[in-house]
Simulated assay, not measured.
Amino acid sequence: MTSWFPPDHESVEDAVAAGKLTAQDAERLGVGRLPASADLSAPEMAAQAGRAALERAGWSPSQVGLVLHTWIYHQGHDMWSPPHYVAHAVGAGGATPYGVQQGCNAGSLALQLAAMHLDADAGLDAVLVTTGDRFCPPGMDRWTSDYGLGFGDAGTAALVHRGGAGPDDYALLSLATATDAQFELMMRHGNDFSPAPMWHDGFIDLRTPKKSYLAQYGKEKFETVAGRNIRKVIADSLHDAGLEPDDPRIRYIALPRLGASLLDSIYGPVIDELLKAEALRFGADTGHLGCGDFLANLADLRDRMPLQPGDIALVISGGAAWTWACAVVQVPQEHSVAGGE
């Protein structure tokens, strides 16, 4: 798997100076800067990551039979299929492409779907999973469109195939999900259904419906349900992988790239209760990558942490409306830096 980030950034100091954040907001966010694409669209960044993933794995694009692309924000054109663009751009023009939509949890869902396709279709050699988002004006402000989040631009990708086809970065041992769809209301509370995009405000404003929802229902219910489902996906993924929570091979759990205050209040208490593994936060220089958090965390685990063959890590994610997921991955014994995914 790979992450592709644009070279340009927006700093939190500039956001504070521009009046977008207070100093207290910046502290709660816990982000120093956000990658910001000056020219490349979201699917172009996804294709950059996809090509890099194929090159890293040493696989030909012609061996890819399926391309799964996911996103949460505008892809550069209306009434258009970005998955087909990604497939064409990486050289897998004969692969079947389709989009995966599940909010910010869709990166993990796409990985799960890739594994299911490979399990069901003996003729399928490999699946390319990509994510891509560019959170730019005028439709969105990466610093102020949501509470507790700063949105960074990126493309991410993973090449997924069955075992035994060569050295890999990880073996996927399990992936568990949990959903409570009642909270879809949080993302639209106080607004009628609209006939066109950005009808209500002219830009993406996630704060207003959340504020309206919390004013009526409070935050305790969501925090309780979120904690319960985070606990469930961790426990279920470990059970499915045949592991106990205190297994010494479990080295790390990578958290979503959310603001520090959100991680402290919702994810931290559950993880501290369940696991001895170190909780990792990779988002200080990227912010939230939408669907890209999940694959970017897998890439950073590989590149930035001292994982050895046989070591195990967990990667957890969540997506608004709401679904949570947790994957258990292991570094294979035949691990090779030049290997596949």
Rank of each mutant, 00 (worst) to 15 (best):
P6S: 08
P7C: 12
P7V: 13
H9L: 14
S11I: 10
K20F: 04
L21E: 07
T22C: 09
A26I: 02
E27K: 10
R33E: 14
P35Q: 07
P35G: 13
P35C: 06
A38V: 11
S41V: 04
S41K: 05
A42Y: 00
A46T: 02
A47K: 01
A53Y: 01
A53M: 02
E55N: 12
E55T: 14
R56P: 10
W59C: 15
S62P: 09
L66G: 09
H69T: 03
W71A: 04
Q75P: 07
G76S: 10
D78A: 15
D78S: 15
A87P: 06
A92R: 06
G99L: 02
V100S: 03
G103R: 00
C104I: 03
N105A: 15
N105I: 05
N105W: 01
G107K: 01
S108D: 06
L109S: 14
L113Q: 10
A115N: 07
M116C: 14
H117M: 11
A122W: 04
L124Q: 14
L128D: 02
D133G: 00
F135C: 03
P137F: 02
P138M: 08
G139S: 14
T144K: 09
A154N: 02
T156V: 02
T156R: 05
A158K: 00
H161G: 15
G164W: 00
G166C: 04
P167V: 01
D169G: 10
L172I: 09
Q182V: 13
E184L: 15
M187N: 09
G190K: 08
D192L: 06
F193H: 13
S194W: 11
P195N: 12
P197M: 00
W199N: 09
F203T: 12
I204A: 13
I204Q: 13
D205E: 07
D205A: 05
K210F: 08
K211A: 14
K211D: 15
S212M: 10
Y213E: 10
G218T: 05
E220K: 12
F222N: 03
T224Y: 06
R228A: 12
R228D: 15
N229L: 12
V233I: 11
V233S: 03
A235G: 14
A235M: 08
D236H: 05
H239A: 15
G242Y: 09
G242F: 04
L243R: 10
E244H: 11
P245C: 11
D246V: 10
D246T: 09
D246E: 15
A254P: 13
L263Y: 04
V270L: 02
D272E: 15
K276G: 14
A277T: 05
D285I: 05
G290H: 01
C291V: 08
D293V: 06
F294L: 07
L295W: 00
L298A: 12
A299V: 07
D300F: 13
L301Q: 08
L301V: 04
L307V: 08
I312Q: 01
I312E: 05
L314S: 03
L314K: 01
I316S: 12
A321D: 12
T323E: 11
W324S: 10
A327W: 00
A327P: 03
V329H: 04
E334A: 13
E334V: 15
H335T: 10
H335D: 15
H335N: 11
A338H: 09
G339T: 02
G340K: 02
E341H: 14
